[in-house]
Design a protein around this nucleic acid. Structure first.
Lengths: 224, 224
DNA sequence: CCCCCACTCCACCTATCGATAGAGAGCCCT
DNA sequence: AGGGCTCTCTATCGATAGGTGGAGTGGGGG
């Protein structure tokens, strides 16, 4: 964390919660500075040319202009900008289009804070992709492979490991504020089993504890 | 919990999260059955005449028709219905109007699950008010006292104990999923102090643990 | 001037959680 | 039939969280 230049970051997402959640964390970093936020692609293009950020976290599904279009436009004007596509479990299909449009990588919205920060730093260092070699493997193929293949392989990424039905159920109960014992009673299984499920949920979401997981799930609308 | 007749409950609130959160819990009770939900006063009046519930949990601030108006109309048609006004920290002033309109009591949206259930049962038993004798005292005065007096005394209720500034700050950090130690670092206080604050926040919100408190806070928009 | 309140800190104790490392049952697909 | 996956369960252990019962500070109001 040498005191060179702070990484200038711009956040683009139409969900206020996402912006605030991520923005908050970015604001805490010594090596980063949040230069601006935008809630749609059009604002993002404007914001980019105004603030000339190093890294942009770009949501895909937004009103007015999508993140894909915005990525394309920004890459035309400011090709040095590192754009990271923000995805949820639901819109992984856009990863492909995003990379095609010039994004250097992607980040799941429910990624752990550490993952997010490391992704930003890696993008700034000019690394094409992050986390796992598997991810790198997948993305290096993007330019040449078919959509289906990418989608299938992306689904295997540790980052994107989907929750099983039972795990989603468990997460939902967690989000109601129930303790393990209460969840066990409600679902008629042992507390130990609940712990097993909770453990895997935390792993998959990259969270250290249930509160963090619940916050993440609520903010990303994974549960009610 | 004798197997007599289940208490028929209708939920009225424009916030989906509130309806789902409360509705979920009500659905779990052996002695209650959720007969319907409505998202504004007009729907509530219709729903009431259709389902003839025993107890209605009625939000105040809603589009189309307020909970106060709806209460008035329902009491005209179905005077036996027990209507409980749902309030937040912010709209306690409506308690007075609600009682005037025929509601039998009120419930804070951030009440503990147990509080909510007990409130519904008490309302069904025909009790005018619940929880503390202080609350009973306050509300027995409603018909005769001025608005200001009621408001001031209501503010003293344990149900409505407002969070101090610092406690709100702590709650906000909790809602970001931070651990006590992290909160301590961020706010530059000791972990013990954080624990003290957390303890009082849990007390005031009537929650058993931080996850429950965070869920409550998020659902009631007490924090971002 | 003194009291109340919010905020801070401490120490001790217990409950709950989360990590770890298994293992067996049922199911689907090959 | 066998492999893989999900769900179930067990047991142990260290890390957090939460309860209890204090105590000291500073600011604001009576």
């Amino acid at each position: 964390m040498l005191k060179e230049e702070k990484i200038k970051v711009v956040l683009v997402d139409d969900q206020t919660m996402i912006r605030q959640g991520f923005g908050y964390v970015i604001g805490l970093q010594q090596d980063m500075i949040l230069k601006g936020e935008a809630s749609n692609g059009k604002e993002a293009v404007q914001m980019a040319s105004e603030t000339r950020p190093d890294v942009i976290l770009m949501d895909v599904q937004m009103p007015v202009m999508s993140g894909i279009e915005a990525t394309r436009e920004i890459m035309n004007v400011l090709p040095k900008t590192k754009i990271v596509i923000l995805t949820t479990f639901d819109d992984q299909e856009y990863i492909y289009q995003g990379i095609r449009a010039g994004a250097v990588g992607y980040l799941l919205k429910d990624a752990d804070v550490e993952d997010m920060l490391e992704t930003i730093r890696a993008a700034h260092r000019g690394e094409a992709i992050y986390k796992t070699s598997l991810a790198a493997h997948v993305l290096s193929k993007v330019a040449a492979t078919s959509f289906e293949q990418v989608e299938n392989e992306a689904a295997k990424l540790s980052l994107a490991e989907p929750l099983t039905e039972r795990e989603q159920e468990i997460l939902q109960e967690m989000a109601y504020g129930l303790r393990n014992e209460e969840i066990a009673q409600k679902l008629v299984i042992s507390e130990g089993t609940v712990k097993s499920h909770v453990h895997r949920v935390l792993q998959k979401l990259g969270c250290a504890d249930r509160t963090h997981a619940v916050v993440t799930a609520l903010r990303n609308r994974m549960v009610r």
